[in-house]
Amino acid sequence: MFNTKSKVLVVDDMSTMRKIISKILKELEFTDISEAVDGEDAWMKALEANPPFDLIISDWNMPNCSGLDFLKRVRAHDKLKKTPFLLVTAESEQQQVLEAVSSGVDQYIVKPFSKESLKQKLEIAYKRVAKRIGA
């Protein structure tokens, strides 16, 4: 089960999708939710966050810095690399999924999605991270 006290960063260039994800997170009883408008903004917020974010939910297809590029930066950073990372995308082709997995994504969710499917993906992501860090 995930921890609803987690500090979450929601990244999407579309305000409507940030609203949808934040609304679902609130329904799942998450309370500490921040937003970023693209990968570049998210990267700055991730570096500045103290304490760091416990979970990142990011869109893939964004201008400036894509979600995949943001993920690669996070995974290459000593202090951030273990942060659970969930990619949200309208892309569901196998090639894209494989690229995300090889870049270190914990879970991948295809738009449109329901509250239940986001909840499931979060649970799986948290389990994977716990296993990876030996918690």
Partner: peptide, 14 residues
Amino acid sequence: ILDGASEMTNIIFG
């Protein structure tokens, strides 16, 4: 909310 049109376009396209 205007970018909702963009989001729907993106989802349908994907």
